[in-house]
């Protein structure tokens, strides 16, 4: 019951901000959000104290589709709200949410260096995980990146 209430509450908070909704599982809601509305959306969630930002996942849909998707997973009890932001693969820039959630910094650093997505305004964009001698324009988690040996 609490989970349903939490999900309904999330829907009411994001009524004017989400462009599309889906419910992939009973405890989950996915809300599609435009990049320019992302900070406003997370600010509203934070003001309403709706759960916490549990993770940021970067998805590469491949060069054929030409899109990245960045997923912001918020959890409140068992309820999981995912904000889905689609980016053009040729210009992968998204605003940082660190002004609202300072602890998002390691999530943004990881997603940024692994997929080559720029988080505009992130306080620290240095590498968190990649080795110092890593080629700067090689982004390991992109689908068209084949690492040495093909299976590293």
């Amino acid at each position: 019951m609490t989970t349903d209430r939490n999900l309904l509450h999330a829907q009411s908070i994001l009524r004017d901000l989400a462009t599309d909704w889906s419910q992939p599982a009973p405890e989950r809601y996915d809300a599609h959000v435009l990049p320019q509305k992302l900070v406003a959306t997370v600010t509203k969630l934070n003001q309403a104290r709706w759960g916490y930002l549990a993770a940021i996942t970067g998805l590469d849909k491949g060069p054929e589709v030409g899109e990245f998707e960045v997923l912001y997973h918020f959890c409140a009890g068992a309820a999981v709200l995912t904000l889905r932001v689609t980016l053009n693969r040729a210009y992968p820039v998204i605003p940082s949410v660190c002004a609202v959630f300072p602890y998002a910094s390691p999530y943004e650093r990881e997603t940024g260096e692994m997929l080559g997505i720029r988080f505009d305004g992130t306080p620290d964009d240095s590498w968190l995980f990649l080795p110092d001698d890593w080629e700067p324009e090689v982004f390991p988690l992109r689908k068209d990146t084949v690492l040495n040996g093909g299976d590293a």
Partner: peptide, 18 residues
């Protein structure tokens, strides 16, 4: 203070895709 990790990074997420 600042943090730098990755000294035990093995690329497991990439590896799962193959």
């Amino acid at each position: 203070a600042s943090v730098r990790l990755g000294y035990a990074h093995r690329g497991i997420e990439k590896a799962t895709e193959s």
